[in-house]
Design a protein around this nucleic acid. Sequence first.
DNA 1: ACTTATTTTTACCAACTGGTCAAAAGATTA
DNA 2: TAATCTTTTGACCAGTTGGTAAAAATAAGT
Lengths: 218, 218
Amino acid sequence: MAEAKTVLKSKPRASKTRKRTRIQAEKEDQILEAALDVFSKHGFRGATIDQIAENAGLSKPNLLYYFRTKETIHRKLLDELLENWLAPLHEINPEGEPLAEIKAYICRKLELARDYPRESRLFANEILQGAPRIADELQDLKKLVNEKSKVFEGWIADGKLAKCDPHHLFFSIWATTQHYADFDTQVCTILGDADKCDNRFEEAAKFLDQLFVQGLRP
Amino acid sequence: MAEAKTVLKSKPRASKTRKRTRIQAEKEDQILEAALDVFSKHGFRGATIDQIAENAGLSKPNLLYYFRTKETIHRKLLDELLENWLAPLHEINPEGEPLAEIKAYICRKLELARDYPRESRLFANEILQGAPRIADELQDLKKLVNEKSKVFEGWIADGKLAKCDPHHLFFSIWATTQHYADFDTQVCTILGDADKCDNRFEEAAKFLDQLFVQGLRP
DNA sequence: ACTTATTTTTACCAACTGGTCAAAAGATTA
DNA sequence: TAATCTTTTGACCAGTTGGTAAAAATAAGT
């Protein structure tokens, strides 16, 4: 009976049961930061734990003390990402002025691309690979998009928005805005390494505004 | 002096010097076909030779008899891809009717996305990773885009096209069309597995036409 | 100060990776 | 049909990969 108390003893990993230590919080952040870099560049299979560990300034076993597997890290990054990803969509206000709402949505998406390009690329990588790990989340997105599409259809019926397929409108907005994160290398190469590249997000906002607002005017 | 004749003897690989055998042509095609599948899904680092070999129905050493390294296969795929990638851009006719030319260009790009989605994803993967292997080709693209941008600027000066930045116009066209290849999984999930998904390219053509033609009308 | 819990390191593994080699098996040609 | 050239195979290898076990070092609570 003496060893009864050891039965429930958790494995010598960073315990998720008790409160997180200061060190745990710090190191986990370091790891996720480094992992985002690596995963967003090489995708899940192409990324290695060693690479992430080195990037985070830790030894591999030390990293694995905080996250038991490669999948765990990836999963965590995806979860954080998807939360932020849906936010701008939620903010579309059915009561607002249609073209202004769409303009604001484009603006928010473009800001995400500018401020969180690695997250955008992580997502792109996941979809490119056939979205094997985010099938469920894609269903949530589907529901939300269908909801907002109904709003758009209402606007169209009211003659406040050009007749068009809301789904494809969403695709176009996502594509054009995320392009500035996912294809940044290409964008910068083509704009040249001059001022034009530094201002690319302002210029993009201007262009997309014009394209969508004029293109969708009823 | 007797061994002089062996000096130039090439390694026992598929000889590129002599004319290609029937078998060589067949097997190389098989391999490239299989490799396109794997590379476009997992990127360069994430793809393995074993995977490609199995996909092609060959043993690994047999595959390596036709292509000496993983890079060789990848390089070949990229070369083929980039050739087709620039073609639609070349076809933009400076003498044509501006909006009709743009509409036709969008249509050609959309057809590429529909008919060669894996090639599009291969390219996307390469750019996502920072375009380490196609820096030169990107410079060629830059030159060509600058050339065609001049054409657009001429059209704008003539009042036949809305005032806008041609570079960002190109980005938007690339983004929206390639989206249907690169993010196909997401597109199909959101459209549902019904008819709407089957018709997605027709619907996309219709939508993009409206968006760009109306959006760019002067 | 001492006990306990957390963090880090060292040494290790089995499976996989890209790639080689030599010999066997099949085609082709003289 | 024999000689030659091309194709395929099986055995192999060194380096990398994801991950483990146990002990050593450090930090925290009492």
